[in-house]
Design a protein around this nucleic acid. Sequence first.
DNA 1: GTCAAGATTAGT
DNA 2: CTAATCTTGACG
Length: 184
Amino acid sequence: MDSLSKPVWEVAPRLLGWRVCRRLGDTVLKLPIVETEAYASSEDGASHAWRGPTPRNRPMFGPVGRSYVYFIYGMYHCLNVVAHAPEAAGAVLIRALDHGQCNGPGKLCRFLQIDRELTDLDLFASPDLWLEPGEPGGEVATGLRVGIRKSVELPWRFWIAGNRHVSRGPVVLPSSLGEGGPGG
DNA sequence: GTCAAGATTAGT
DNA sequence: CTAATCTTGACG
């Protein structure tokens, strides 16, 4: 899709309000995205694509609008939507959906039964996992990404302000806490 | 082959 | 703050 063929940090906030659709047997769940993070390429030390293509991250270098699902910490899966400018690489991590059991990237994949077998699918053509455009329906907040150790300063986390199912509150750089703040 | 690190979560 | 749990990627 055209709206995904732009720098991933521009696409990530625009995916808020879109629905992740998942078929589970006879049931189809459609849950709005309420929190995302952008992961780019060589300019982003926290991205899986940082050191170039590997068997795992190959979808990030492929066509936009496909899924990138990876396994992490020996027990969780994370769902991404491939998005990047032409000739670039990148993906948007889906961190939370508007549902009580989807308030975190690992938790939403557990709830929707998403694992690596669903990686590299066309998210506009798959009968099992797909996306539908939508609107945020609220103010979009921006902040620092969660759970990374490199490129910590990039403000590439986006969420719907005030939504109950966002995985965490705002994250700030240690340097901006000031010297009078709580000890760390 | 070996090994350290990891886009997380639940519990102390 | 730490344990759980195992895949991945780098090195050789």
